[in-house]
Design a protein around this nucleic acid. Structure first.
Length: 327
DNA sequence: TTAGCCGTCACGCTTGAAGGAG
DNA sequence: CTCCTTCAAGCGTGACGGCTAA
């Protein structure tokens, strides 16, 4: 996993600066540098590029169309330190804060030496001592308000019972069955989106049983009711994702679909991103390297609860228009 | 009494998923 | 279906107030 201890270790390994600044294992750093010599040259002149690299490991700024390396997104605090408003400090600084604190350095001295506000130092140390992690939390996203797992399961049940059921009928049924109320019932368009979802359709078809209630005899109301009383157990893992997990085990760990506290339709249904997407964003790293970039202990479960790895693209996303043509 | 330290919180910001509009 | 908006999460900074030592 890439967190306090790995970053700490990385300091003493090859390509330390790159590894630390990217928050990745030195081996992954080495391979990335081999892919893009410009990075290594840049790191040799770390000082003038420091503001850039400080933002780089976390930010998706380089992938943002408006991003410019002109410092317009950065600011300078009262201590003279460079920061990016709204973005977390890099792992290197965070690790240094913790390291210095553990050596007995006072927070005020840490603040002055690292040029980070003492409020920030206090927050990072507080987080470290309460969670054991120096990594920032997950930024962005929102909790789904209506498409909860239970609602999706119920919709799936209704659809299995009556595939021709209209969205407004589903909505009505959800409220009738007190799955959700008037205020938090998904809109018709939301239901349509859920129903259109490919994984949802697979889920419904794979879990459909040849029961008498699923036949088209009788009204949709009746068949829906009969199913709602025997709602299906939690959905089994779709074979598709199992296959993927077996093929690219390291890619099942990224918490993109396992972010604590949030979930998506895909997440509910247990699907995974297509590997090509990840490969595109990770410079075609081998899966072994990806397992270094993505902190994974081989299991999905415990990692999910630690808030230890922000949900975002791999940290070493490097765009050709940034690196290419510079030298 | 004063200066420095430290925790807390409001503020302005970014981010990304959900939901709505066209 | 695509694009835009909304919302709730997190970020670091800077100000404030309580505490402590000189």
């Amino acid at each position: 996993m890439v967190s306090s201890e790995k970053v700490g270790v990385a300091i003493f390994h090859q390509f330390p600066q790159f590894a630390v600044y990217c928050g990745v294992h030195p081996r992954a750093a080495k391979r990335l540098i081999a892919c893009e010599p410009f990075l290594y040259l840049s790191l040799k002149n770390m000082e003038p590029l420091a503001p850039i690299w400080r933002t780089y490991p976390y930010s998706s700024y380089p992938t943002h169309p408006n991003f410019q390396f002109d410092g317009s997104h950065t600011g300078v605090n009262q201590l003279g330190g460079v920061f990016v408003n709204g973005r977390p400090l890099p792992d290197s600084i965070r690790a240094q804060i913790v390291e210095m604190s553990q050596r007995g350095t006072r927070p005020c001295d840490i603040s002055r030496q690292l040029k980070v506000s003492h409020g920030c130092v206090s927050k990072i140390l507080g987080r470290f001592y309460s969670t054991g992690s120096v990594r920032p939390g997950v930024i962005g996203g929102s909790k789904p308000k209506v498409a909860t797992p239970r609602v999706v399961e119920c919709i799936a049940g209704y659809k299995r019972a009556n595939p021709t059921m209209f969205a407004w009928e589903i909505r009505q049924k959800l409220m009738e069955d007190q799955i959700c109320g008037e205020d938090n019932a998904p809109s018709v368009s939301s239901i349509n989106r859920i129903v259109r979802n490919k994984d949802f359709q697979n889920f419904v078809s794979q879990n459909s049983r040849p029961t008498s209630s699923s036949s088209s005899s009788g009204s949709s109301q009746q068949s829906a009711q009969s199913t709602s009383r025997q709602l299906p157990p939690p959905p089994p893992q779709p074979p598709q994702s199992q296959q993927l997990a077996a093929t690219v085990p390291s890619l099942t760990a990224p918490p993109t679909f396992a972010m604590p506290g949030t979930y998506s339709i895909n997440g509910i249904l247990g699907s995974l991103p297509h590997p090509s997407i990840l490969d595109d964003k990770s410079f075609h790293l081998s899966h072994a390297d990806m397992s270094l970039v993505y902190p994974t202990s081989g299991t999905i479960g415990p990692r999910v609860l630690e808030h230890d790895w922000p949900m975002r693209a791999p940290v070493c996303t490097i765009l050709p228009n940034y690196c290419g043509g510079q030298l």
